[in-house]
Write a protein that binds this DNA or RNA. Structure first.
Length: 512
RNA sequence: UCCCGCAUGGUCUAGUGGUUAGGAUUUCUGGUUUUCACCCAGGCGGCCCGGGUUCGAUUCCCGGUGCGGGAACCA
């Protein structure tokens, strides 16, 4: 394949959301797979929607995900600037070319006049209410006004836009790598605004000009762009660039969990999961949105999950590192249907990745978290606790809650278990075991297991029958980590004390 | 309303003109674990509907329905 160049082109109108991350990921993977170049371009042509901090947020988020661009405004590159607000003269130049070749025209209609036109068309039950090849002849533009009038308008600083002159009758064929051929009639297209009255280009113009100038070979983006591709193809043609036009691939959208509509922040809030990679504080409302990172998701899990949203490897492999994805990815394996966001699946991925995380690392986090609530924990026992708990948690922070049994005496005891399991015999057996344990110093879990078994067997009691009660004595609850491991970390002496103390608390419930 | 797209268990998906339609997740059950979890095994559950082509259609074609996207001086 030719020298592949792709771009991720977000606009800094807020935090980058999960759908954007997926688009960035697929661009990145496609670039890596084909030994191409991944470019980050900031599309900040809308001055009204500009949000402070959004651009740096986007960069930080991509960084956290490991999707590092090869070219960007920060990193540089041979095709800059990579920010559209810094490319205004370039667009001006090209729109002039379109004006000169009669593919674009000035339009002086005010927003009120446009509304009026649409209202009128609605009343006449026109099939659509567009500014297009038929309606433009009754509007105020350089097609209907004389050359002198146009000059006069411009000279007197009347606001105007530059619109694209869509041909009346033409079939526009577009090819999409994921969807195949699509045919659209130009009569259904409107005369898109190319240049706004503030002198900034619209997305349509800027994106074509930049993709051409930056030698983009493949445009990979969300399906919401599919309807505007015909206009884009026409633009390439009018600018004389159709031969080198990039190939298109429109990704299926990520939908709300219930499947009705594009995934939105609102929907994510409602369903109780994050939508932004990192925490985001909206500078306008001051609302803080919790990010995937801060919720405890690992970037590897997020990326792995996202990679399988609309793409599949064609094999049954599910766990992929970014590196593996770079080798396995292909646009041909991207499917067409929209994808509902399933929070259970990403939780599962997180669990998988947490298990492969270094215990020392998790232990450090655990120590810090415990310190916040006033518990001191040595590194060595923190590592032991992590080892014991690692495969039972979804988020690293779950460790803190689960490890509380090592630092706090149980206060509540699972009554169901106590009522069912606590007999005089159980009581005696556990007391006996506690006594034996009180005489020991450090023991491994395996040694404790043996000791437990021998002690109970010698007393003629089935060890299995007292297990649940032992758990309640040690932790208060009826489920939790391996008991022998718990006692090892607790130390035999402490375990012994705790068993006796707990028995004392519940002994009034002994049944005969 | 118009334009465009899409349709395999609840969810993510593989796949085929003839298959017991495969995997993952979720959930349930059993096994293992003298405890809990992991793990292992199993169960429930699916080709949107109608027509056509065909010996045979989930697969190809047409229509319908449903769902999604778009219809800005937003991207």
């Amino acid at each position: 394949m030719e020298n592949v160049r792709v771009r991720f082109a977000p606009s800094p109108t807020g935090a980058l959301h999960i759908g954007g991350v997926r688009t960035a990921l697929f661009n990145y993977l496609f670039a890596r797979k084909n030994r191409g170049t991944f470019i980050l371009r900031i599309e900040d042509t809308d001055q009204n929607r500009f949000v402070d901090g959004a651009e740096s947020y986007i960069k930080e988020a991509l960084n956290w995900c490991g999707l590092i661009p090869d070219e960007s405004s920060e990193i540089g590159g041979d095709y800059g600037p990579y920010k559209q607000s810094e490319r205004k003269e370039i667009y001006q130049q090209h729109v002039q070319h379109l004006l000169d070749s009669d593919h674009a025209y000035y339009a002086f209609d005010t927003p009120e006049e446009l509304d009026e036109m649409r209202e009128k068309l609605k009343e006449t039950k026109a099939t659509n209410q567009q500014y297009n090849s038929v309606t433009r002849m009754s509007m105020k533009n350089s097609l209907t006004l004389s050359v002198e009038e146009v000059e006069e308008h411009i000279k007197s600083r009347q606001p105007y836009v530059i619109r694209m002159k869509i041909p009346l009758k033409e079939e526009v064929r577009i090819h999409d790598i994921i969807r195949g051929w699509i045919v659209v009639h130009s009569s259904t297209l409107d005369d898109k605004v190319l240049m706004k009255s503030d002198g900034f280009p619209t997305y349509h113009l800027a994106n074509i000009v930049d993709d051409h100038l930056m030698k983009i070979t493949h445009v990979i983006r969300g399906e919401e762009w599919l309807p505007s591709v015909p206009s884009h193809v026409l633009l390439y043609r009018f600018l004389g660039w159709e031969d080198t036009m990039p190939k298109f691939a429109h990704l299926p959208l990520i939908l709300k969990p219930d499947g009705n509509g594009k995934l939105s922040k609102r929907a994510a809030d409602k369903a109780g999961f994050p939508i932004f990679p990192l925490n985001w504080k909206d500078p306008q409302t001051n609302d803080l949105s919790q990010g995937f990172k801060e919720e405890g998701y690992l970037p590897e899990a997020l990326i792995n999950f996202l990679s399988l949203l609309g793409w599949n490897p064609g094999t049954e492999q599910e766990i992929f590192s970014l590196k593996e994805l770079e080798d396995a990815f292909s646009l041909e394996q991207v499917n067409k249907a929209g994808t509902k966001f399933d929070i259970d699946k990403i939780r599962w991925f997180n669990e998988q990745y947490i298990r492969s995380l270094d215990s020392g690392l998790l232990a450090n986090q655990l120590i810090a978290n415990l310190e916040k609530i006033g518990h001191v924990c040595e590194k060595e026992s923190a590592v032991a606790i992590v080892e014991l708990l690692k495969d039972r948690i979804t988020f690293p922070s779950d460790l803190t809650d689960l490890s509380l049994i090592f630092f706090e005496e149980p206060i509540f005891f699972d009554e169901k278990v106590v009522r069912k399991k606590l007999t005089a015999e159980t009581n005696n057996a556990l007391s006996l075991f506690a006594k034996v344990m009180s005489e020991k110093d450090a023991l491994s879990a395996e040694e404790i297991r043996k000791l437990f078994s021998i002690t109970l067997n010698d007393a003629g009691i089935n060890p299995g029958s007292v297990m649940q009660m032992l758990r309640v004595c040690l932790s208060g609850g009826s489920s939790g980590p391996d008991l022998m491991g718990v006692m090892q970390i607790l130390t035999p002496k402490k375990s012994s004390e705790r068993i006796l103390h707990s028995l004392d608390q519940v002994k009034h419930l002994i049944k005969d």
